[in-house]
């Protein structure tokens, strides 16, 4: 099995988890909120996995193709997170959505994260690497770092002030990964 196919297969983990939970235990009293948060959580987790690939390449160079796939999975979970928020949570109430985007910092930041993910997802093909030239493409994809930290901020601003543990954990992981990634240049 190719590395890339195995990476796609990882998407099944959260999806089966969600289906199993819904089937056996139900999704609780507020299923819409539960699913939206689930998609957001997994977007962040796939972002972590994506950024883990580069440091691992030193020992496992064969993993390289998984990076793009994992990045795309992060994008797809972010996309479904956004679509559920727009279509199910807000039920396409555009005026209310617009007010949310302008007024709520965590929504503003969430949307910025998504808009930054978009060009990375679009240019994930070999065709785009050629079209942009490898160096420019690589520079563009450095956007993943601000995306990672802004996603943590989006998470932290959404929750009550005492429950910062999880977003701080992700921030810590991203800091370590950034250190591994950039320390040689410094």
């Amino acid at each position: 099995m190719s590395v890339r196919k195995a990476a796609w297969g990882l998407a099944l983990v959260p999806l089966l988890w969600l289906a199993g939970k819904a089937w056996f235990f139900g999704m609780g009293a507020n299923p819409i909120e539960a699913v939206i948060r689930f998609q957001g959580d997994w977007g962040l987790r796939f972002l972590v996995l994506t950024l883990c690939v580069t440091p691992l390449l030193r020992w496992y160079p064969r993993l390289a193709p998984a990076r793009r796939t994992l990045g795309l999975l992060a994008f797809f979970f972010a996309l479904s997170h956004l679509l559920l928020y727009v279509g199910v949570d807000k039920f396409f109430a555009w005026d209310e959505l617009w007010r949310d985007i302008v007024k709520r910092r965590y929504i503003t930041i969430g949307l910025i994260v998504f808009l930054m993910l978009l060009p990375l997802a679009v240019t994930s093909t070999n065709g785009w690497v050629k079209r942009l030239g490898f160096v420019a493409w690589k520079h563009l994809h450095l956007l993943v770092w601000p995306i990672a930290f802004l996603a943590c901020l989006h998470f932290a601003l959404m929750i009550k002030f005492y429950a910062y543990g999880e977003p701080m954990l992700y921030t810590g992981i991203f800091l370590i990964l950034a250190g591994l990634r950039f320390h040689k240049r410094a």
Partner: peptide, 10 residues
């Protein structure tokens, strides 16, 4: 941090 205009009735 959020609107109070509407609510989700469980």
């Amino acid at each position: 941090r959020w609107s109070q205009k509407r609510e989700r009735r469980i």
